[in-house]
Computed example of a mutant assay.
Amino acid sequence: MLKQQYDFVLSSRNTLLTYIESVSKEDFLTDNSSFGRGSIKNLLVHICQTYCAWIGERALGIEQIFLPLETYQTFQECQTYFNQVDEYIGLFTEKFKGNELHEMELDRNGSILTVNPLQLFTHVITHEFHHKGQIMSLSRHLGYTPVDADIIR
């Protein structure tokens, strides 16, 4: 079930990423303090970092190196980071297939959390959609007309 749901997420994300490709490089990098991480680029990197922290590092035990936001400067670098996210989600969905409600303990900054894979998966995808909304609003402030990137469109 997680795999099918992630396919919906990918469809929405691909619509978003195709749209972002139409944004100028200058606007892609433009900081706006009203939008959390400040720029479209930073929001995309933050989405990826969150997937990598929760799914890659905590759920799969794959050590992560989180580079500063300034390291990423191009749309292609963000796209490559999303490819890594997709690999982790593939591993995650295979590892927990049939055990989506099985509780597990995860370390979060020295505290132990008890969650199940469905909760964890829901957490990261809703986080992505939250920031997708910020990206759409930010792009509107930059003079663009956002596309419909909802799951059902």
Rank of each mutant, 00 (worst) to 15 (best):
Leu2Lys: 04
Gln4Leu: 11
Phe8Gly: 05
Phe8Glu: 06
Leu10Asp: 09
Ser12His: 09
Ile20Ala: 02
Ile20Asp: 05
Glu21Phe: 03
Glu21Thr: 08
Lys25Ile: 11
Asp27Ile: 01
Asp27Lys: 12
Leu29Ile: 11
Asp31Asn: 14
Ser34Leu: 13
Gly38Ala: 08
Ile40Cys: 13
Ile40Pro: 07
Lys41His: 01
Asn42Glu: 02
Leu43Thr: 07
His46Arg: 06
Ile47Gly: 04
Ile47Val: 14
Thr50His: 04
Cys52Ser: 12
Cys52Lys: 15
Ala59Tyr: 01
Glu63Tyr: 11
Glu63Cys: 07
Glu63Met: 13
Leu67Ile: 08
Pro68Arg: 05
Leu69Trp: 08
Tyr72Cys: 10
Thr74Lys: 02
Thr74Arg: 08
Thr74Asn: 06
Glu77Ser: 07
Gln79Lys: 15
Thr80Ile: 13
Tyr81His: 11
Tyr81Ala: 15
Phe82Cys: 02
Gly90Ser: 12
Phe92His: 02
Lys95Glu: 02
Phe96Asn: 03
Lys97Arg: 11
Gly98Ser: 05
Gly98Glu: 07
Asn99Ile: 05
Leu101Phe: 13
Glu103Trp: 04
Glu105Tyr: 10
Glu105Lys: 15
Leu106Val: 03
Asp107Thr: 00
Asp107Glu: 10
Gly110Arg: 07
Gly110Val: 04
Leu113Ser: 05
Val115Asp: 00
Val115Asn: 04
Pro117Arg: 05
Gln119Thr: 09
Leu120Asn: 09
Leu120His: 03
Thr122Asn: 06
His123Val: 04
Thr126Gly: 02
His127Ile: 04
Glu128Asp: 06
Lys132Asp: 01
Gly133Gln: 02
Ile135Trp: 03
Ile135Asp: 06
Ile135His: 01
Ser139Met: 03
Arg140Lys: 13
Val147Gln: 12
Asp148Cys: 10
Asp150Met: 01
